Structure formats: structure tokens, C-alpha cells
Amino acid sequence: MFLFTIGVYSQVYNMEVEAKLHINQDNEHITIKGIAINKTKGNKNLSYKLSVFKTDQNNNKSKNQQSGSFDISSDQQKDLSTLSINFDKKSKLIILLLVYDSDKILIGKDRVVLHDEKQNSLEVRKDIADKINEFSVKVSEQSINNEVEAKIQIDQQNDFTSIKGTAFNKTEITKSLIYKLVVFNKEEDANTIEDEKHERFILLANQKVDLYSITFNLNKADKKICVLLIYDLDHNIIGQDRIVFNDDSNDRLEKKKKREQQLRQAQENSKDVSVAVKDGLELNGIVVEDTKTKPGRDFYKLFYALYSQNNINGNKVVTIKEILALGRNTKIEVIVGDDEVFSFFVRPSTEYLTKMNDYAIVRVYKHFKRQEKESKTIKRY
């Protein structure tokens, strides 16, 4: 019953108020700061407890603890307490931050373990590599990248290659997540990890962020595998991307696809019925301006900047059109192809235009996603 109760309450931690630890280690000195983030629209009166449990190489144990009450406004991040302690690599450190509501119910929690032999063992690293390989194989069977999309961007200059992990929140909910960016040499195995980085981060609604960059020397004969994984707080993988450099199997697969395509074209050309061929090029990510006033042009600039930043890259032209409305007022219409997806009356306020821009981006993104889903649906008549 005790374990079941813990399991139930762990599912609601950090939903309304998130507890977060920031740790900075400098040689044998470590600074710990506890932070609370109010994700709701209401003010809250809360309390916290920051505890540090230390076990040295002689198994001597010590405890340092701070606690207090605080008020936090809506959508605010608040520093709670800071601890500075001496710390050597032979000691194990458990850091625990707990946040309670006014009824002393635990609502926020964060925990970090430093220099734990079990966590740093080869078996654990091998288990991580096995999970990466398992999810790489089964990615098509799971709902990966539906809510949060993981993407690896590549920049090659001479023999040096830089990869950058990015995360894009497709939902309208702020999320607390963990990412892991790993570079393997030749094979996805714990013993072939060349570089890795993992860290917690906050991802706002409809936001795209850069996570971490890794640069390595890549020769034509070297095979490297780069994997980006994004986890939720329950350590479930919700986003994934994987890139393989200098993989012979990819070349063979590409040649096979070309042969199959040539065969299909030959079969279609041999039919008695003529086959229509599409002419021209398909242009993606085009945003057109048709405005009349300075606020209209300002909105277009805001929209285009956010459209490019989120890498929406739609396959239809998006038009920002300003038309005359009642009196001297004007109205902005956001049109995707021939469909109007959002409209509003213009006001010369940067804050107002920015808010309308956020709404417009969400509507445009959902419109493209809905069209993409409908194009994959088999219609029956």
C-alpha cells in the first residue's frame, strides 16, 4: 500500500508548480540553488525543503537542510535557497528539493545524485545504449515526435562536422523535459560512446529551442551514429532523431530505391492509358505580405520571424492580408492557400500584435498538420 501511494502521488509532481535544482561544481566546491516555477495563472503560498545528504569514502554520513515559506505569482520563477558545500569525487551526494502547498501536500520535487557508483557503472551505460538501440528500431511503432519533436541539425566544414540538437513543442502546454545527445563510434554500444550530453530543460508552448552542439572530426572512412532522445519526467521517450554518417547500408538502400523507382516508371510508361506528369517545382515556406499600414507590416515581420524560427515550412503559400474594416480600422487576415485560418482587427500595440501573432502561428501550424493527416487518409466513396 505504501509503494502504491508513492506511485500515485509521483504522477502529479511538478504539474502546477515545478521544483528544479541548479548545480554548479567548481573543483571541490559545489553550489546548489533551489528554484520554483509557477505554471498556473494564480498566485500561491507555498513552502519548501532543500536537503543535502553526503556520504564520504569512509561511509560517514552528514545532512544539511534549509526550509522556508514563500509566495509566488502566476507564471513566475522564484529562487528559494542556495547552499555551498565542499565536495570531493570520492563522496556520494544526494540533493533533494521538495515544494509543498498551503495544506503541506507535496506538489513539486527534484532529486539529483552525484558520484553514485551504481549510476555511473558500465552496466547502466550499457543499459542506456540498449534502450537507444531498441527505440531506434521501434520508432515507427510508437507515438514519437507527436507532441515534442527532436531534430538533429548538421553543419559540415572540411573534415569537421557539428551536430546540434533541437526540440520543438507542438502543444500549447509548457513541458519540463530531459534530453540526451549521444555520438557513437561505428556501433551503438556502451563501449563506443564518443561524446554525450544530457540535461533537464523547460520547453514553452509552441517553442523551438537549441539544446546542445557537438563537433567532431569526420573522415570519409569513419562511421558515426548520432542519436537525440527527449524524455518526459517519467523517463518515457517522447522525441527522437537519429543520423548515421558514412553508412554503406544507406547507400545500398538508396540504390535499391532508385532501381525500384526506375522499374515503376518503366511499367507506367508501358501502359496504354496515358499517365499525367506533374510539371514545375513545389515551393515550401513562402509567406506573402499584402498590408496597408505600419502595424500591418509590423505584424507581418513578427509572423515571418516566428514562422521561420519554428521551421513550419508549409507546402502552401501563407498570405498576410490587410483589408479595410469599419470606419478607419483595418483587419488582418491570415490565409493558407485559399483558406482563411485566422483574422483580427489591427491595433497599433506591439504587445497586442505579438499576442495575435502567437495565436496565428498556432492556427497555421494546426491547419498544415490537419491537411497532412487528411492527405494520408484513404477516402471511400
Rank of each mutant, 00 (worst) to 15 (best):
Y9C: 02
S10D: 15
N14K: 07
E18L: 07
K20S: 10
N24T: 10
K33D: 00
T40E: 06
K44G: 13
K54Q: 08
D56T: 06
Q57G: 08
N58R: 12
N64W: 03
S67G: 04
D71Y: 14
Q76Y: 08
K78R: 14
K78G: 07
K78E: 10
L80F: 04
T82D: 04
F87S: 07
I94R: 15
V99N: 00
V99I: 11
I107S: 05
H115N: 11
E117S: 06
K118I: 06
N120P: 00
L122M: 10
K126H: 10
D127I: 00
N133Y: 10
Q142K: 13
E149R: 01
D155P: 04
Q157Y: 13
S162M: 04
I163M: 04
K164Q: 02
K164E: 04
N169Q: 07
N169P: 04
T171R: 08
E172Y: 09
I173M: 11
I178L: 06
Y179E: 05
L181Y: 01
L181P: 03
N185I: 10
E188S: 03
D189K: 00
N191H: 09
T192R: 12
E199K: 12
R200D: 06
K208A: 00
V209E: 14
Y212D: 01
T215G: 00
F216G: 07
F216Y: 11
N219F: 08
A221Y: 06
D222E: 13
L229M: 00
L229N: 12
Y231S: 02
D232A: 10
Q240D: 04
R242Q: 12
F245M: 08
F245S: 09
D248M: 13
R252M: 05
E254L: 03
K255D: 12
K256E: 15
Q261A: 15
L263Q: 05
R264D: 15
Q265F: 06
E268Q: 10
E268W: 10
N269T: 03
N269W: 10
N269F: 01
S274M: 13
A276R: 10
L281N: 10
L281R: 09
G285M: 11
P295C: 02
F299I: 03
Y300P: 03
K301Q: 15
Y304A: 06
Y307R: 05
N310F: 00
G314Q: 09
N315H: 07
I320Q: 05
L326E: 13
G337A: 09
E340I: 14
F342E: 03
F342I: 06
F344W: 02
R347V: 00
E351Q: 13
K355W: 14
D358F: 02
A360K: 08
I361H: 09
Y365H: 01
K366V: 04
H367C: 08
K369W: 07
E372Y: 08
K373L: 13
S375M: 08
I378N: 11
K379T: 12
